[in-house]
Each structure stands twice: as structure tokens, then as C-alpha cells.
Design a protein around this nucleic acid. Structure first.
Lengths: 309, 309
DNA sequence: CACCGAGCCGAAAATATCTTTCATGGTGTG
DNA sequence: CACACCATGAAAGATATTTTCGGCTCGGTG
């Protein structure tokens, strides 16, 4: 009797996932919201001090976090490992990695009185971190499946509102460039209206960081019900949107702050995922994609003035 | 017989030596002569394939080497660990280390037949590189000036078409969130029409990677002529658009390829610049920005379904 | 050539560690 | 206020690791 979330058709974790190598901190952040209090304590301890925790036995870690062995094991499971033993191994690996590599995980937040140069450095660093986390946490099996579906799709609809709407448009622009039929919808009504047209073989993609945006879930559900292949790009792999997603692509969740709204790093993460989708599709349809790309490039040439130089 | 040269100094524990971190292969060689035959077999296996052995239990490793558990433990002891458990942990660390060390071999371009995992790694790496380049090349004086102008502006117009249009919208969305009057124009005609309305104290921002996009240059010129403060975000600081820009913010230009259009990395770069602008402005207008941010957050709350957990 | 001791070696017992089960208590809901 | 649900930890159960112990080989010696 497993106690992992039931989820009828939801992909959740695909059959055999290789336990996360180093994306642990990111995974903790991604999964933390879906954890119970005690499990969060354990996860936090683990993310805080991998090296320290790697030295502890289940009992030790349970005591340290003021919980029980059972909870520790449960947390390890949630993080994707078969048991605590394996989590511990991964922890050791992580510790060694950040020991050898540059470990200056400067987590300083952006302050109101930071000089502008610091703002630039911190933002760049944070976004780099987000990219690394996203890449590490991205399930290539799911990604591959999504790419295959896209490459074969008769038509693709992408849903996203707010900041995610821009990402949706970005993906659409790219897909159009390589000759695919893609459309981005930010109007919920039109999105649903169009979703009804989808059928098996078509693809619908929902982009939402929280995974709870009704305006985006609704059209995906409709598409799902009509038999389209559905993909969710979200930071919360256990959120409602994944109910209707055949493939879930998880974006990373960075800590946010007052001066750094969540939208900022989630957008970076989403764009990376979208780029991966695009390149993946471009690879698979290279024969037609390559000429389409250069054609669109040519078409724009005359809208550029000649450069001074 | 303690180790002679390895880990000689450092803040090592006195007396008891801290288990070798990574110099395991060397240690094996050093100690091999003093080992018995079966122990040598174990040591060899361990040095040969740390990752593989880390996945094995005592029994597993014993079987693999055709020896017994006791021998495995004895070998671990000889190598300086309290027992096999700790050797295994070190092994996992070692594996992770040489795993990550192998990573920077991704300088190559994305090929048509790259496996999807490589695509992810390469894209992430490239975008990280782009961010670093952008941050390094960004002129903080120009940035500061642009921020000051934005913070004081009565109204801000942002121009961008194509991929840059999304960046323009991104900036606009953010500025609106902190209570500034901002508008993104991707329609060249409307952009010019609106640019006429600008006057001293207002700000106009043009976003174009090539710096030669007529549809974006034109409205900036109009704004410039009407006395607005103008900013250009471009990858070509010598391009036509800068003629009409009071402040030029340079984005980085990464190499592109068939499968990775220029739009991809220029977008990353532009977004970082835009984020810097936003945070800078938010800092300067903190008094009004902070409440505006939380207000916009509140306003959206009801559009999200409650999360599962 | 037979005997003897030293120490390598592995089977199995003993222990530590990890995993599972199950009863309990808290929490939110009708 | 009763109810169902679920998080939680204690303890039983299963594995993995460590230790013990006796057989065995090998080299030397009478």
C-alpha cells in the first residue's frame, strides 16, 4: 500500500526516475508546499546542511528535527528516493560537490538600499541558479514525450495568463517559426472555445507557476476531455493543473522576496523549459524546421535598417 | 601505518585521520601493497567504479569481488573509514564529484541528434553564460540613470516587436504592478501615435536586439524629438537606435546556430536588463511600490483554486 | 615428509540501521 | 458536537553492517 498521491492518470513521477543527483535544494523547494509540517522540518534540515545530515542515521536525523524515523523515511520517499539510505547517499554526493565546486551559495536577498551594481549581480546570480535548478530537476522522459507529441501534432494550443502568458506567446512564436500550427491564448473564454476543437493527436499546453490558475486549468481540462495530449508546465507538480496533464514539466521554485516577486524566477524557469521544448521539436522536424527558420529570417530582413558599422 | 603525504595539513582531526575525501584512488594505490589478495580485489573494484560500488551493499560488493562481507569491511577499515557504510558515503561523494567535473564538456553546439538530456544541459549552460556576460557588460551608470528617469516619469512607453515585444510587455507588466504608468507598444503605428504625446520627464524605452528594427527606432526617435528621456536596450551599442537614446543598456550577444536562433539568448539577456530596471525602480519608489505589489497579489488570489494539500 | 604456527578468509551470529505497521491524537467539517 | 480524515511517532519487522570464530592455506622447521 503506497501512500503516494493516488492520481488516476496523472503522470506524477514516471515509472523509474533516477534519483535526483544534485538538484536537491531545488526539489525541496518545489515539493515543500506539498509536505506536512514535520516533513518540512526534515526537508529543511537536509537542504540546509547536506553534509551534516549525510553523517546522520535515520534516528539521528529524526532526533535532530524533533520528528520520528518514519517521518524521515517518508520525506526521503517524497523527494524521490526509495528510502533514507539512498537519500543519504545523494546527500553525501551533494556535499562533496559543493565542497569541491564553488560553494558560495550567497543567498543574500536584495535590499532596498543595495547599490545598483549589487542588484545586477544578485539578479544575475539568482537567475543562473534558477536555470541550474530547472535543468537539474527537469524530467527528460516527460520532456521527450511532450516533444514527440508536439512534433506530431496537427495543432497546438498554449494557455497562460499574466507573466506566464508571455511565456506562452514566446513558445508560440517559436513554434510558428518552424512551421507548426500553434496558438497562444490568454483570454480564458476564447481558450476554452478553442479547446473544444482539439482532438486526439493535438496538443494543449498549460503554463502556470502555481498550478492553480483556474483560467488556465479550465481550457486544459477541456482539451484533455476531448482527447488531446496535454502538457502542464508548472512549479507545483502536485497542483490541480496536473490532474489534466498527460505530461508534467516541472519548473523550479526559487525563494522570492518583496523586491523579487516569484514571477521573476518562475519566468526564467518557464522559458528554459519552453526553449527545450522548442529545440527538441526543431530537432525532430529538422527537415522542415531548418528551411522554415531561414525563411522567417529572410522575411524580416527588410524591416531592419542597415547597420552603421 | 598512517598515510604519509595525503592530507598532511589542513585542519584535520588530530590523531584520527578524517576519511579521505576524494583522494581515494591514490590511497588505494598507496595501500595496495600492504593488502591481502582479496582485499586488493575489493579495493580495485572500488577505485575502478566508485559510482557503481556506491550503489552496492556490503553483500553486493562481496559477491561482485568474489569475497566475503568481512573482507569488504576490512578493506574499508584499511582505507581509513570506520566501516563500509562510511566508505560507501565517500564513494557516493566521489562519484558525484567526477560526475560534475565532467559537465563542462558541453561547450559544443546543439546538434540535430543530441539526446534530449544534452539539449537541456546545453541550453541551460548557454543561458547561464548569457546572464553572466550581460551582468558583466552592463553599464551601471547608464542603468542608474535609466532607473532614475523611470522612477520619476509621469508616463513610460516601451517599444518592442517580435521576441523583444514580449520583453517589452514583461517590463510593462512589472512597472504597472508597482503603480507606474507604463505601456507596451508592438504596433508600430500606435507606437508612433503615442510617442507624440510624450514630453520632457516621460520615458521611452526601445528594445531591439539588432538595434536596426525600424518599427522600434521610429517611435523612439519621435519620443526623443519631443523631449522625453529615451533608453535603448540593444545588443549593438553602435547601431542606429542609439542615435536617439539618452541611455544605452547593452545586452550580450551570444553565438547562435541553426537550432538556437539569436532570439533565444538575446531574450534572456534583455530580460535580465529589464529585471534590473524594475528592481532598481522598485527600490527607489519603495514606499509606494511595496503596497502596490501586495495589492496586486491580493487581487489575484481568488483566481486561484485552493491547492490540494 | 610430517608437523606447526601465523594469519587470511568466509560463514554465521550479533548488532546497528532502516522500513513498515499500527494505534493515537489532532484538525477541520458537516 | 460528532465524525472522518490524516499526520505522527512508537514499536515491531526486515535489512544491512559488523563482529566473532573456526577452517584453511602457506611457509618454515624438525
Amino acid at each position: 500500500m503506497k501512500e503516494i498521491f493516488a492520481s488516476g492518470r496523472g503522470p506524477g513521477e514516471p515509472g523509474i526516475l533516477p534519483p535526483a543527483p544534485a538538484a536537491l535544494a531545488a526539489k525541496v523547494r518545489t515539493l515543500a508546499p506539498s509536505m506536512t509540517r514535520s516533513m518540512q522540518r526534515v526537508a529543511e534540515a537536509v537542504a540546509d546542511d547536506p553534509a551534516g545530515c549525510a553523517a546522520l542515521t535515520v534516528t539521528g536525523l529524526a532526533e535532530l528535527t524533533g520528528t520520528s524515523e518514519a517521518t524521515v523515511v517518508r520525506t526521503a520517499r517524497l523527494l524521490g528516493y526509495p528510502g533514507y539510505r539512498d537519500l543519504r547517499l545523494a546527500l553525501a554526493g551533494l556535499a562533496a560537490q559543493q565542497q569541491s565546486g564553488r560553494a558560495p551559495a550567497i543567498t543574500t536577498d536584495i535590499a532596498v538600499d543595495d547599490p545598483i551594481a549589487d542588484v545586477v549581480a544578485k539578479l544575475a546570480y539568482d537567475e543562473q541558479q534558477t536555470l541550474a535548478d530547472t535543468a537539474a530537476g527537469l524530467d527528460t522522459v516527460q520532456l521527450g514525450a511532450a516533444v514527440a507529441a508536439l512534433a506530431a501534432a496537427r495543432r497546438t494550443d498554449v494557455y497562460g495568463v499574466g507573466a506566464s502568458g508571455l511565456v506562452a506567446q514566446d513558445l508560440t512564436q517559436k513554434l510558428l517559426r518552424i512551421g507548426l500550427m500553434a496558438h497562444a491564448h490568454s483570454d480564458p473564454h476564447l481558450a476554452v472555445t478553442n479547446a473544444v476543437q482539439l482532438r486526439a493527436g493535438d496538443v494543449a499546453i498549460a503554463i502556470t507557476h502555481s498550478g492553480t490558475t483556474g483560467d488556465v486549468i479550465e481550457p486544459l481540462r477541456v482539451a484533455f476531455d476531448h482527447g488531446a495530449t496535454t502538457v502542464a508546465v508548472t512549479g507545483r507538480p502536485d497542483s490541480p493543473v496536473t490532474q489534466y496533464a498527460d505530461h508534467v514539466l516541472t519548473t523550479s521554485t526559487a525563494r522570492e522576496s518583496e523586491l523579487r516577486p516569484a514571477a521573476m524566477s518562475s519566468r526564467t524557469s518557464q522559458l528554459l523549459v519552453v526553449d527545450c521544448l522548442f529545440v527538441g521539436v526543431a530537432q525532430r522536424t529538422y527537415e522542415s524546421a531548418a528551411p522554415a527558420l531561414s525563411a522567417s529570417y529572410e522575411a524580416l530582413a527588410h524591416r531592419h535598417r542597415s547597420v552603421a558599422r
